[in-house]
């Protein structure tokens, strides 16, 4: 909650140029506070930064045109234009970094959570990001199917197997699970099972099972 209030505070106190590049900074700062997760997509601030870039460039164009008409004044506007240009470049960098790092995190999530994201994470994404995720997910699935004779799931088998069967404890009320051999078992919270390793590895990764050694 502190986070959101802080952003509101920033949005409120931003004047045209006093905080040259402050908004972009606030955007990146917000990202840096959330380790290991994606904060809500800050549409307002992204729009505000884009607007600032546009404003800076418009002002620069205006001054540049003014100085070509009367060439004596040209030298004096140069520093102004340079400063504004630097600020625009900085804002652009912040915007790019914001989006790029979010996408990076999203990509890791595909490997860790699997192809379906938990609802509360999905709620934090922008439309474009949701679309990107489903595209990436599809591409990855297509690739994994194409490897070998009948495809291979690259997200599992991260550690060398010691035995074909392992013992697991179920951590949530999962419901029914169909095993590869066709039998269906009911997974209840705190129940113990002795199952083929390749049936449960993915569920262990997703935090449904706990591996008991």
């Amino acid at each position: 909650m502190v986070n959101i209030n802080y952003i509101k505070f920033c949005n409120f106190f931003i004047f045209p140029l006093i905080c040259l590049g402050k908004k972009g900074y606030a955007l990146v700062k917000e990202l840096s506070r959330c380790e290991d997760s994606i904060p809500p997509y800050n549409t307002d601030l992204v729009k505000a930064v884009s607007a600032e870039i546009k404003q800076l460039i418009d002002q620069n164009t205006e001054d540049a045109n003014a100085s070509t008409e009367e060439s004596i004044g040209a030298a004096s506007f140069l520093p102004t234009v340079r400063i504004r240009h630097a600020a625009a470049k900085r804002n652009m960098r912040c915007l790019m970094a914001y989006h790029y790092n979010r996408i990076r995190c999203l990509r890791t999530m595909r490997w860790e959570f699997g192809s379906v994201l938990p609802g509360d994470i999905k709620a934090n994404l922008s439309l474009a990001e949701v679309e990107w995720f489903s595209k990436y997910s599809r591409m990855l699935a297509t690739y994994m199917r194409s490897v070998g004779d009948e495809g291979i799931n690259l997200a599992v088998d991260l550690k060398p197997p010691k035995a074909l069967y392992i013992e697991v404890r179920c951590l949530v009320d999962y419901g029914k699970l169909e095993l590869n051999d066709g039998s269906v078992i009911l997974l209840k919270k705190d129940s113990r099972h002795y199952l083929p390793r390749n049936d449960c590895e993915e569920l262990i990764r997703q935090g449904v099972f706990q591996h008991i050694v």
Binding site: D36, F113, I166, E201, I204, G207, H211
Partner: peptide
Amino acid sequence: VETGATMEAANMVVNHKKRK
């Protein structure tokens, strides 16, 4: 200490659960 490698939940999944 232990040679038999335990399979664990993914890092992000664990953190997500804690936060919930």
